[in-house]
Amino acid sequence: MTQTMEGRQSAQDARSSDEEPILKARSLSRSFQGFKAVDDLSLDLHEGEIMGLIGPNGAGKTTMFNMLAGSLLPTSGTIHLKGQDISREGAEKRLRRGLGRTFQIPRPFPEMTVLENVLCGAQGQSGEKAISAFFRPARSRRDEALALEKARHLTDFLMLSHLENEKARVLSGGQRKLLELARILMADPKVILLDEPAAGVNPTLLQDIMARIVTLNEQGVTILLIEHNMDMVARLCSRVMVMALGQKLAEGAPDVVIRDPEVVRAYLGDAA
Protein backbone atom coordinates (compact mmCIF):
# COMPACT_ATOMS: atom_id res chain seq x y z
CA MET A 1 0.00 0.00 0.00
CA THR A 2 2.82 2.38 0.79
CA GLN A 3 4.23 1.54 -2.61
CA THR A 4 1.00 2.65 -4.22
CA MET A 5 1.00 5.89 -2.32
CA GLU A 6 4.52 6.59 -3.51
CA GLY A 7 3.46 5.84 -7.06
CA ARG A 8 0.65 8.35 -6.80
CA GLN A 9 2.90 10.91 -5.26
CA SER A 10 5.53 10.79 -8.00
CA ALA A 11 2.81 11.03 -10.61
CA GLN A 12 1.34 14.07 -8.86
CA ASP A 13 4.69 15.80 -9.23
CA ALA A 14 4.74 15.08 -12.91
CA ARG A 15 1.29 16.53 -13.40
CA SER A 16 2.01 19.74 -11.59
CA SER A 17 4.90 20.58 -13.90
CA ASP A 18 4.16 22.57 -17.03
CA GLU A 19 6.28 20.50 -19.36
CA GLU A 20 4.97 19.11 -22.64
CA PRO A 21 3.01 15.86 -22.10
CA ILE A 22 4.94 12.78 -23.21
CA LEU A 23 1.90 11.55 -25.14
CA LYS A 24 -0.51 14.12 -26.50
CA ALA A 25 -3.63 13.28 -28.49
CA ARG A 26 -5.73 16.02 -30.04
CA SER A 27 -9.30 15.69 -31.35
CA LEU A 28 -9.04 12.01 -32.18
CA SER A 29 -12.02 10.54 -34.00
CA ARG A 30 -12.60 7.14 -35.48
CA SER A 31 -15.76 5.87 -37.08
CA PHE A 32 -16.66 2.39 -38.25
CA GLN A 33 -19.15 2.46 -41.10
CA GLY A 34 -20.78 5.63 -39.86
CA PHE A 35 -20.67 4.68 -36.18
CA LYS A 36 -18.43 7.05 -34.21
CA ALA A 37 -16.51 4.86 -31.75
CA VAL A 38 -14.34 7.75 -30.63
CA ASP A 39 -15.57 11.28 -31.19
CA ASP A 40 -13.23 14.27 -30.95
CA LEU A 41 -11.30 13.13 -27.91
CA SER A 42 -8.12 14.74 -26.58
CA LEU A 43 -5.81 13.28 -23.98
CA ASP A 44 -2.57 14.30 -22.26
CA LEU A 45 -0.32 11.78 -20.59
CA HIS A 46 2.47 13.30 -18.51
CA GLU A 47 5.84 11.74 -18.06
CA GLY A 48 6.02 9.53 -14.97
CA GLU A 49 2.33 9.26 -14.19
CA ILE A 50 -0.11 6.40 -14.13
CA MET A 51 -3.34 7.53 -15.71
CA GLY A 52 -6.55 5.52 -15.86
CA LEU A 53 -8.97 5.37 -18.77
CA ILE A 54 -12.33 4.09 -17.61
CA GLY A 55 -15.87 3.93 -18.87
CA PRO A 56 -18.72 1.52 -19.48
CA ASN A 57 -18.42 -1.22 -22.12
CA GLY A 58 -18.59 0.15 -25.62
CA ALA A 59 -17.38 3.59 -24.55
CA GLY A 60 -14.57 3.45 -27.13
CA LYS A 61 -11.65 2.88 -24.74
CA THR A 62 -10.05 0.09 -26.75
CA THR A 63 -10.55 2.01 -30.01
CA MET A 64 -8.79 4.93 -28.36
CA PHE A 65 -5.98 2.59 -27.30
CA ASN A 66 -5.67 1.13 -30.77
CA MET A 67 -5.32 4.60 -32.21
CA LEU A 68 -2.74 5.65 -29.64
CA ALA A 69 -0.75 2.44 -30.22
CA GLY A 70 -0.96 2.63 -34.00
CA SER A 71 -3.01 -0.53 -34.60
CA LEU A 72 -5.75 1.68 -36.00
CA LEU A 73 -5.37 4.94 -37.84
CA PRO A 74 -7.66 7.76 -36.68
CA THR A 75 -10.25 9.17 -39.07
CA SER A 76 -9.09 12.57 -37.88
CA GLY A 77 -6.93 14.10 -35.16
CA THR A 78 -3.26 14.01 -34.24
CA ILE A 79 -1.01 12.13 -31.82
CA HIS A 80 2.35 13.39 -30.61
CA LEU A 81 4.91 11.37 -28.68
CA LYS A 82 7.66 13.40 -27.00
CA GLY A 83 6.69 16.29 -29.26
CA GLN A 84 6.93 14.32 -32.49
CA ASP A 85 3.95 13.73 -34.73
CA ILE A 86 3.32 9.99 -34.93
CA SER A 87 -0.28 10.18 -36.15
CA ARG A 88 0.32 8.23 -39.37
CA GLU A 89 2.88 5.72 -38.10
CA GLY A 90 2.15 2.03 -37.64
CA ALA A 91 2.38 0.15 -34.34
CA GLU A 92 5.86 -1.18 -35.17
CA LYS A 93 7.31 2.30 -35.64
CA ARG A 94 5.66 3.64 -32.50
CA LEU A 95 7.13 0.84 -30.45
CA ARG A 96 10.57 1.69 -31.74
CA ARG A 97 9.94 5.24 -30.50
CA GLY A 98 9.17 3.87 -27.05
CA LEU A 99 5.39 3.54 -27.04
CA GLY A 100 4.25 -0.02 -26.26
CA ARG A 101 0.90 -1.65 -25.60
CA THR A 102 -0.70 -4.84 -24.36
CA PHE A 103 -3.94 -6.29 -25.67
CA GLN A 104 -7.19 -6.63 -23.76
CA ILE A 105 -7.34 -10.28 -24.76
CA PRO A 106 -3.70 -11.39 -24.60
CA ARG A 107 -2.19 -12.37 -27.92
CA PRO A 108 0.77 -14.63 -27.16
CA PHE A 109 2.38 -16.53 -30.05
CA PRO A 110 0.76 -19.83 -29.10
CA GLU A 111 3.20 -22.28 -30.67
CA MET A 112 6.30 -20.55 -29.35
CA THR A 113 7.66 -21.13 -25.87
CA VAL A 114 7.26 -18.53 -23.15
CA LEU A 115 10.93 -17.64 -23.46
CA GLU A 116 10.73 -17.30 -27.24
CA ASN A 117 7.67 -15.11 -26.83
CA VAL A 118 9.56 -12.81 -24.52
CA LEU A 119 12.61 -12.77 -26.80
CA CYS A 120 10.37 -11.49 -29.60
CA GLY A 121 10.03 -8.26 -27.67
CA ALA A 122 13.74 -7.48 -27.96
CA GLN A 123 14.55 -4.44 -30.10
CA GLY A 124 17.51 -3.76 -32.35
CA GLN A 125 18.58 -7.41 -32.28
CA SER A 126 21.19 -7.84 -34.98
CA GLY A 127 20.24 -11.53 -35.36
CA GLU A 128 16.83 -10.44 -36.60
CA LYS A 129 18.42 -9.25 -39.84
CA ALA A 130 18.43 -12.04 -42.41
CA ILE A 131 22.06 -11.56 -43.30
CA SER A 132 23.40 -11.77 -39.76
CA ALA A 133 20.95 -14.56 -38.96
CA PHE A 134 22.76 -16.48 -41.65
CA PHE A 135 26.37 -15.68 -40.80
CA ARG A 136 25.89 -15.18 -37.06
CA PRO A 137 28.66 -12.69 -36.42
CA ALA A 138 29.92 -12.24 -32.86
CA ARG A 139 27.67 -9.22 -32.49
CA SER A 140 24.44 -11.06 -33.11
CA ARG A 141 25.49 -13.89 -30.81
CA ARG A 142 26.23 -11.31 -28.12
CA ASP A 143 22.89 -9.57 -28.74
CA GLU A 144 21.07 -12.87 -28.42
CA ALA A 145 22.91 -13.75 -25.22
CA LEU A 146 22.09 -10.36 -23.70
CA ALA A 147 18.48 -10.66 -24.82
CA LEU A 148 18.28 -14.11 -23.27
CA GLU A 149 19.63 -12.82 -20.00
CA LYS A 150 17.13 -9.97 -19.98
CA ALA A 151 14.27 -12.29 -20.95
CA ARG A 152 15.14 -14.62 -18.07
CA HIS A 153 15.24 -11.64 -15.73
CA LEU A 154 11.79 -10.54 -16.92
CA THR A 155 10.21 -13.98 -16.68
CA ASP A 156 11.58 -14.06 -13.17
CA PHE A 157 10.20 -10.59 -12.38
CA LEU A 158 6.79 -11.67 -13.67
CA MET A 159 6.77 -15.09 -12.05
CA LEU A 160 6.94 -17.09 -15.27
CA SER A 161 10.37 -18.69 -14.80
CA HIS A 162 9.02 -22.15 -14.13
CA LEU A 163 7.08 -22.02 -17.45
CA GLU A 164 9.80 -20.64 -19.69
CA ASN A 165 10.03 -23.72 -21.91
CA GLU A 166 6.29 -24.34 -22.14
CA LYS A 167 4.35 -23.45 -25.27
CA ALA A 168 2.43 -20.23 -24.68
CA ARG A 169 -0.85 -21.93 -25.57
CA VAL A 170 -0.84 -23.91 -22.30
CA LEU A 171 -0.77 -20.78 -20.13
CA SER A 172 -3.75 -19.71 -18.05
CA GLY A 173 -5.48 -16.38 -18.68
CA GLY A 174 -3.58 -14.65 -15.88
CA GLN A 175 -0.25 -16.07 -17.01
CA ARG A 176 -0.96 -14.82 -20.52
CA LYS A 177 -1.46 -11.32 -19.10
CA LEU A 178 1.93 -11.59 -17.42
CA LEU A 179 3.55 -12.91 -20.58
CA GLU A 180 2.22 -9.94 -22.53
CA LEU A 181 3.70 -7.63 -19.97
CA ALA A 182 7.05 -9.43 -20.06
CA ARG A 183 7.12 -9.30 -23.85
CA ILE A 184 6.47 -5.59 -24.04
CA LEU A 185 8.92 -4.81 -21.19
CA MET A 186 11.59 -6.53 -23.23
CA ALA A 187 11.35 -3.55 -25.60
CA ASP A 188 12.04 -1.04 -22.77
CA PRO A 189 9.16 1.26 -23.67
CA LYS A 190 8.97 4.69 -22.06
CA VAL A 191 5.18 4.69 -22.24
CA ILE A 192 3.02 1.58 -21.89
CA LEU A 193 -0.66 1.33 -22.71
CA LEU A 194 -2.08 -1.45 -20.55
CA ASP A 195 -5.46 -2.77 -21.67
CA GLU A 196 -7.18 -4.37 -18.67
CA PRO A 197 -4.11 -5.97 -17.13
CA ALA A 198 -6.23 -7.45 -14.33
CA ALA A 199 -9.20 -8.84 -16.26
CA GLY A 200 -9.77 -12.51 -15.49
CA VAL A 201 -6.87 -12.64 -13.05
CA ASN A 202 -7.24 -14.27 -9.62
CA PRO A 203 -6.96 -11.99 -6.56
CA THR A 204 -3.49 -13.18 -5.48
CA LEU A 205 -2.06 -12.62 -8.93
CA LEU A 206 -3.87 -9.28 -9.07
CA GLN A 207 -1.88 -8.00 -6.09
CA ASP A 208 1.30 -9.16 -7.77
CA ILE A 209 0.46 -7.49 -11.06
CA MET A 210 -0.33 -4.24 -9.27
CA ALA A 211 2.93 -4.37 -7.38
CA ARG A 212 4.80 -4.93 -10.66
CA ILE A 213 3.05 -1.97 -12.29
CA VAL A 214 4.05 0.26 -9.41
CA THR A 215 7.66 -0.94 -9.59
CA LEU A 216 7.73 -0.15 -13.31
CA ASN A 217 6.33 3.30 -12.73
CA GLU A 218 9.00 3.93 -10.12
CA GLN A 219 11.58 2.94 -12.69
CA GLY A 220 10.31 5.82 -14.86
CA VAL A 221 7.78 4.17 -17.12
CA THR A 222 4.69 6.24 -17.89
CA ILE A 223 1.51 4.17 -17.91
CA LEU A 224 -1.97 4.59 -19.36
CA LEU A 225 -4.32 1.98 -18.03
CA ILE A 226 -7.74 0.75 -19.11
CA GLU A 227 -9.34 -1.00 -16.18
CA HIS A 228 -12.77 -1.97 -14.89
CA ASN A 229 -11.57 -2.79 -11.40
CA MET A 230 -12.24 0.55 -9.66
CA ASP A 231 -10.33 -0.43 -6.57
CA MET A 232 -7.25 -1.02 -8.66
CA VAL A 233 -7.76 2.23 -10.56
CA ALA A 234 -8.12 4.16 -7.32
CA ARG A 235 -4.99 2.64 -5.86
CA LEU A 236 -2.75 2.97 -8.91
CA CYS A 237 -3.80 6.05 -10.80
CA SER A 238 -3.23 9.68 -9.93
CA ARG A 239 -5.67 10.79 -12.60
CA VAL A 240 -8.46 9.17 -14.57
CA MET A 241 -10.42 10.03 -17.66
CA VAL A 242 -13.94 8.69 -18.00
CA MET A 243 -15.24 7.93 -21.49
CA ALA A 244 -18.80 7.29 -22.59
CA LEU A 245 -20.12 6.94 -26.13
CA GLY A 246 -16.79 7.92 -27.60
CA GLN A 247 -16.51 11.17 -25.70
CA LYS A 248 -14.87 12.47 -22.55
CA LEU A 249 -17.28 12.53 -19.65
CA ALA A 250 -15.01 13.60 -16.84
CA GLU A 251 -11.36 13.86 -15.87
CA GLY A 252 -9.62 14.26 -12.53
CA ALA A 253 -8.55 12.48 -9.36
CA PRO A 254 -10.06 8.99 -9.12
CA ASP A 255 -11.99 9.47 -5.87
CA VAL A 256 -13.57 12.70 -7.15
CA VAL A 257 -14.42 11.42 -10.59
CA ILE A 258 -16.02 8.23 -9.36
CA ARG A 259 -18.52 10.27 -7.34
CA ASP A 260 -19.37 12.54 -10.27
CA PRO A 261 -23.13 12.18 -10.85
CA GLU A 262 -22.71 12.08 -14.63
CA VAL A 263 -20.23 9.26 -14.35
CA VAL A 264 -22.51 7.35 -12.02
CA ARG A 265 -25.37 7.81 -14.49
CA ALA A 266 -23.24 6.60 -17.39
CA TYR A 267 -22.37 3.43 -15.55
CA LEU A 268 -25.84 2.74 -14.16
CA GLY A 269 -27.41 3.66 -17.47
CA ASP A 270 -25.20 1.09 -19.09
CA ALA A 271 -26.23 -1.51 -16.53
CA ALA A 272 -29.95 -0.81 -16.89
Partner: peptide
Protein backbone atom coordinates in the same frame (compact mmCIF):
# COMPACT_ATOMS: atom_id res chain seq x y z
CA UNK B 1 17.66 -17.91 -35.85
CA UNK B 2 16.15 -14.81 -34.26
CA UNK B 3 15.17 -13.84 -37.82
CA UNK B 4 13.21 -17.07 -38.18
CA UNK B 5 11.64 -16.43 -34.80
CA UNK B 6 10.27 -13.10 -36.01
CA UNK B 7 8.97 -14.78 -39.17
CA UNK B 8 7.13 -17.30 -37.02
CA UNK B 9 5.80 -14.58 -34.71
CA UNK B 10 4.45 -12.68 -37.71
CA UNK B 11 2.71 -15.77 -38.96
CA UNK B 12 1.23 -16.68 -35.62
CA UNK B 13 -0.15 -13.23 -34.86
CA UNK B 14 0.71 -10.35 -37.14
CA UNK B 15 -0.97 -7.69 -35.01
CA UNK B 16 0.88 -8.77 -31.87
CA UNK B 17 4.19 -8.93 -33.73
CA UNK B 18 3.66 -5.40 -35.00
CA UNK B 19 2.98 -4.24 -31.46
CA UNK B 20 6.44 -5.65 -30.66
CA UNK B 21 8.06 -3.49 -33.31
CA UNK B 22 8.35 -6.06 -36.10
Amino acid sequence: SPWGRVLRALREDEEAAKALGK
